[in-house]
Design a protein around this nucleic acid. Sequence first.
DNA 1: TTGCATCCTCTAGCCACTAGAGGATCAAGC
DNA 2: GCTTGATCCTCTAGTGGCTAGAGGATGCAA
Lengths: 147, 147
Amino acid sequence: MQALSIGALAKATDVKVTTIRFYEQIGLLPQPLRGSNDRRIYDEQTLSRLAFIKHARQLGFAVDAIRTLLQLSDNPDQSCEQANILAAEQLAAVDSKISRLQALRGELQRVVSAACQGRVSDCRVIEVLSDHNHCAADHDAPAALAS
Amino acid sequence: MQALSIGALAKATDVKVTTIRFYEQIGLLPQPLRGSNDRRIYDEQTLSRLAFIKHARQLGFAVDAIRTLLQLSDNPDQSCEQANILAAEQLAAVDSKISRLQALRGELQRVVSAACQGRVSDCRVIEVLSDHNHCAADHDAPAALAS
DNA sequence: TTGCATCCTCTAGCCACTAGAGGATCAAGC
DNA sequence: GCTTGATCCTCTAGTGGCTAGAGGATGCAA
């Protein structure tokens, strides 16, 4: 059980120092011990917790979902039904994002293949963007997903 | 050439009133004429411009890219090379998002299919999240893309 | 005239960070 | 002992692309 500085924890988990402080601020990580110099001191339990958080974020879980997952993982006697639900929801969300992006991709592909060498006045890219009727299919991807 | 209120423009383009004002504020839409009551008055040119913006946003173009595209479309004598470049970049970005999400999906699929009926202490979902070594492949999707 | 819809401006909130100011402390080398 | 540079601290503000709400003015129909 060795003590880690915030920098060492950051290196060990590949999570930025500022992000670690942020996670503490929003309550994903507990308030750590402090040395006499006021610096944060972490143990390996926090390292595991941060690794868990990082992994869940990489899988696209929102902070609120991670909060729930952490709470579950802190109470091993609870039913894990909620964990299953959260994971299934996340899978569905990713699926829906993928299909939206694929529709988008088709549309963009058509825009790109219309590329021209001339002036804007003849430019198919601009033209296609100007006129939605050029579109083969509806594409209503919300900005947040598409960007 | 009929005059439109902001509400009418919103309805015609399916863009929210507040979003229209926001686009004006960040300079995507010009400052419109104002009636004696200080209300905004739009013409059909602005309607086209807003439709253009909306379409580009649906395709995932960032506001800065849209600014450039609009400037091109305002100057039909310019070369459209830049429009081609922007479209190609956007396609590449979407492609990369799709492949990251697909990697994610595989990972999540494994998490979900590990769903159990028992207690958290036996829960594969939590366990897989706890230990990155369970992962078949690396997945480093930045949060912004994955969420 | 009443009442509701629409409009106005301005400010703050969303998410998950990220960056920077302005300063304290530490560790290594001379 | 002194310098130098890395690391740490807190606090505030910025990112993108909106969205929501306060607090009020105006328009329009019954």
